[in-house]
Design a protein around this nucleic acid. Structure first.
Lengths: 206, 206, 206, 206
DNA sequence: TATGAATGAGGGTTCATTCAT
DNA sequence: GATGAATGAACCCTCATTCAT
């Protein structure tokens, strides 16, 4: 039994959450971060432009905090799933279902936003949010590890596969889905989550 | 013997190619398209800023043409591979090897650039370059189809899997690699192409 | 015995005085008025930003009232000096001494602040504070006149010099001092008030 | 005979000069630098706003360069006067006459502009333009010294007075004039240069 | 009365695009 | 054809002012 380290849950003011949600809604349309004006975010959040600067020091910081916020929420959900009986596929299924309804994680938005951050910006953000990001990273790895170990125990994952490969498969499945959605955005057809689940299943099975 | 439809090979002037290569070099550093200035492209291409506008009507068009140029080159290479004995994995291996040396296709650059184009822009580009893009799309599908059929015949692909799934696997493997490279850009570690090949193999095998 | 015209002494609430003093303290550091934020004044005064607007209708008005406040205090002091035996140089000496300790008049601050008011703003302020400013102007001229007349009587001033020239000398001596202080602000060396006194003496002596 | 050190005359492009003149014209109306928009300067200079940024990196730099430009021109003129027979009062008279016509030096504008620069900004500018400012300062001191020595020789200046006092008198006379002009700007009456000359004469005479 | 969260008009700066040379 | 100086529309951010508490 792996003990879960306690972490301080992040607190956000209603305006911050409104800003994040507004940004995700905008990014979900495929708009790049650089094409999203601060005024757009403010409008989408239903607040004044100046108000954003009461909570964030710059447009870049809105992005950084929004990503951390989304990752934190998704991680918390995943950590909750670890409490009961662990099944990689059942979890993935539920996860994808929630994704589709954009209830849990704005994946497409996140993919767009993350890919909107240049390497240099990432460096700066990493230094500024070092603690939060390390926290997120640590939790993510812990989560992964437990899912993969459980998957190997219950026969979902070939025991010969290491964590690195498993992670690549999961990440690719999500990136692939987001990428296809983006490319096909104008056609209104979304990647079936059946495809995602199937690929993960086939790539990991013994 | 599958007959290949003839298409008019695209002709580019030396300055156009210089512009494309310059743009790819810039994008390969992880810079977003919106952070790349026209002056940067001109400098990287070794020509004057005004000269770019002799060949392209706008910054956006440089991007569009560069993507078409890269895709055309990659497709031509793939089509050449179809001439001999077809092996999905051998082709993938060679492809990834060339990717790594950035000799064939500036994948990372392309991923960054493609993800830099917003949905609206894509619509406009599609209308403007309708013919070229349809051509590319048609060739891509034809290529895919032949590879997948060959794969099913020689036992690399489970015959039960349809083209749609196979395409998703291939696309995901590339997006996943590019995504990981982007995320880990500052750490200098690249996704091993062994991972990519392994995932495709396991996901598609009977 | 010169009779002094009575004037209504200005009444200020503690918060107003706090605002003035805060502003002077900020301006004494060499900061231009336009670089001083309302929040800065509020903080320096130890009150809330909104409270300032209970007492002043605008940032500009804080400046106008502060200047009037400082001039009124300085004039009152000068008028008091007129009660005893009048000596231009003794008065100037005491005045400069008090200036140096910034006890009487925040000269440097005032110079900075006055020079921060544009011509257009001055027009508007003059109309709004017409009565107060006329009052100040009248008292200033009356004061000057008496000092200069006394100076001519006791041999400090060449009787051939008219009030206009005397005023120019006095004003120049102060502006010159403030100007030099401003220019040399970073070097920490202040204009010696000995210089000031000497110039006035030499320029006015018979 | 004091030998004049050669200095590299500063070269300015026509647009730079246009910007300087435009700025001086605006400042001469009494407008503070912070109330002058970049667009105003551009309009006054007859060029586009963006063009200013081809020559100056920021609004602040326009100010710094303009001040250096004006001081350089005035100094060059003064240095020319040193070639012939030197008379402090004749030079001052000619100088004031040219000032009045704003042909040589935009004194009022300069006074306003210089007083518009905060202490912190001065520090930064000094570091950036260290060489130019030291050059200006050195030339200014050399010029002063020669004028004062000549003045003492030909009986215009009391030999007992040191350079420091003489400098203070000259500076005060100009600051006083500019200050009075500013204060009285709206009334259209300018300080008579007769006053200036008289004060300098009386303060320095034996 | 006192406050500071919320606001948006306004300004400095960037950079894609043009056009005279 | 090739160039880069000139341009101004557009955008991020500031901060004076308001007003609900």
């Amino acid at each position: 039994m792996v003990s879960r380290m306690k972490y301080e849950p992040l607190r956000y003011s209603p305006k911050e959450v409104a800003a994040f949600d507004g940004l995700f809604r905008l990014a979900a349309t495929g708009k790049q971060f650089s094409n999203i004006k601060v005024q757009d975010i403010a409008t989408a959040a239903g607040i004044g432009k100046g108000t954003l600067y009461e909570y964030f020091s710059s447009k870049e910081e809105i992005l950084a905090c929004a990503v951390l916020y989304a990752l934190d929420r998704a991680l918390s959900w995943l950590e909750d799933q670890l409490q009961g009986e662990i099944s990689l596929y059942r979890t993935l299924e539920t996860f994808l279902d929630m994704l589709e309804k954009e209830q849990l994680l704005p994946v497409t938005a996140l993919t767009v936003l993350i890919s909107s951050v240049s390497g240099q910006q990432k460096q700066e953000l990493k230094q500024q949010y070092q603690n939060r990001m390390q926290e997120i990273f640590r939790r993510m790895q812990l989560c992964e590890k437990q899912f993969f170990e459980a998957g190997r125990r219950n026969g979902e994952i070939d025991p010969a596969l290491d964590d690195s490969f498993c992670e690549y498969v999961i990440v690719s499945s999500l990136f692939g889905m987001a990428g296809r959605n983006l490319c096909a955005h104008q056609q209104g057809r979304k990647t079936e989550w059946k495809l995602v689940q199937q690929m993960v299943f086939r790539a990991l099975r013994p």
